[in-house]
Design a protein around this nucleic acid. Sequence first.
DNA 1: AACGCGGGGGT
DNA 2: ACCCCAGCGTT
Length: 351
Amino acid sequence: MKFSKKLISWYLQNKRTMPWRETKNPYHIWLSEIILQQTRVAQGLPYYLSFIDTFPTVFDLANANEDDVLKLWQGLGYYSRARNLHITAKYVANELQGVFPSNYKDLLALKGVGDYTASAIASICYDEPVPVVDGNVYRVLSRFFGIKTPINTTAGVREFKELAIELMDHDEPANYNQAIMEFGALQCKPKSPYCIVCPLNDSCEGLKNGWIDTLPVKLKKQKIKKRYFNYLVYSINGKQTILQQRKGNGIWKGLYEFPLIEVEENDRDSIMSNAFFQKMINGHEYKITQYREEPIVHKLSHQHLYTRFYIVNVNKLPALTKEQKIIDFAETHTYPVPILLGNFIEEFFKV
DNA sequence: AACGCGGGGGT
DNA sequence: ACCCCAGCGTT
């Protein structure tokens, strides 16, 4: 039997039930695909349900405030996905009368939709025979065909894409694409795949040569940067605090946070002598206490954030920058914040 | 072509 | 610790 037909056969018997597999509504499929980028099904599923519930149509999403979209996205990470989601919703609602593009090429033009996502939507919604090449597909193909080309190089991306095009099932694009991904997720998984009971184990080059544990080949690991964050949690007359929105292009763009002092070395002197800190407290009576002695270490894929919170008690309003807003304690939890701050707010303000 | 971007789960 | 996850946009 053909490679693709074996996978589809496996898929029809082993696929998990998921809400986005019950529909071909492009709005729902698009939403699920954006949410699932670099995200496990178990983590993304509750977000998918709450987005569908809160924004039943692309018009509802388009008419929302960006802050509300980010708030619903809070905790899912890679927040540019949420901002691009909102941009694309407005584009589809306002420029395309709510009708999504119906082919790979036009889908690719949407913000936040790359090669993978355009292929996924085009194949699932419109039966266009364009192959998806995600992390699962790299693993399945590299093992089955014994391909050692690193997957995160230009040559690797091109080689696997060309192979995927050859293998594409033109009779059932939707089933085939979901089959190879589901197969990679459940059967040909990264560690301890079920080769003994695999329907492809009689012709798998990786298994035959003992390469299962070394495929796919991926070049270098990014090294982790350490950063030292010091948040000033203002308590103004014990009722209000200050939040500011992150600008620029770094992490958490668009999310809110307390006034932040980032230092190179995490010693108390460098924080207290920091120019920004002096400016914030200059001319005001204040009492400052450190929330916890030990920093909270927030681990991201690419950096570790050693974070301290300082409670700054004041009786007068400090001078605010343009980005800063006075917020009632009870309202702090309505702003989209990184999960690191969300946890703190929940604990400290008891909201 | 290389890099930055979250948070969670598995081993 | 380290890897991976239905990747994408920017530089």
